[in-house]
């Protein structure tokens, strides 16, 4: 449908952070500038986005090339604290949907009440038969899923029809 354009984005930097959020947040802010995101939401700074993933997990989305560097700075910053940092840039892929029908097209694939999503919300959900996460980047929607099912995910997104 012409109302939605689907684009597979190139490599995106991603870092998983596990630990108590009050432990992780100061390090994230110091290294990336992103404030601590509230439950299910995300914060943005310097082209990076810090996402709330679960009560003890954040994900940092950044430039692919800077991910290893950021990860080691985060590791240093956290020192001996009980926290785990891992670069996971290659584990997932990201699609971008643009056009006025994007949210409606996504609503054909995932049990999400789009009208009740916060603008900065990162919704982890089920996209047809695979786990996925969605969020807004300006007027565009981003869809993240595991790398191995990129082919399936792309077929879903290109076939999705706004209602």
């Amino acid at each position: 449908m012409s109302e939605v354009a689907v684009r597979a984005m190139g490599p995106v930097g991603m870092i998983t952070l596990r630990g108590a959020l009050e432990t992780l947040a100061p390090a994230v802010e110091a290294v990336t500038g992103c404030a601590q995101p509230a439950q299910r939401l995300s914060t943005e700074a310097n082209g990076r986005r810090a996402m709330w993933m679960s009560p003890d997990e954040l994900m940092l989305v950044c430039d692919h090339a800077e991910a290893p560097g950021l990860a080691s700075r985060l590791t240093d910053q956290l020192g001996d604290a009980f926290a785990t940092i891992a670069v996971v840039s290659d584990a997932r892929i990201v699609f971008e949907l643009t056009g006025p029908g994007s949210a409606s097209a996504l609503a054909s694939l995932m049990p999400v009440d789009f009208a009740r999503l916060d603008p900065s919300e990162v919704r982890r959900t089920r996209m047809a038969q695979i786990p996925a996460a969605i969020w807004r980047e300006g007027t565009a929607w981003r869809v993240m899923c595991f790398r191995s099912v990129a082919h399936y995910a792309e077929a879903l997104l290109r076939g999705a029809v706004p209602a």
Partner: peptide, 11 residues
Amino acid sequence: PNCGLAVEETE
């Protein structure tokens, strides 16, 4: 209760 979302059984 961990993320505050009311979600359906399929999730």
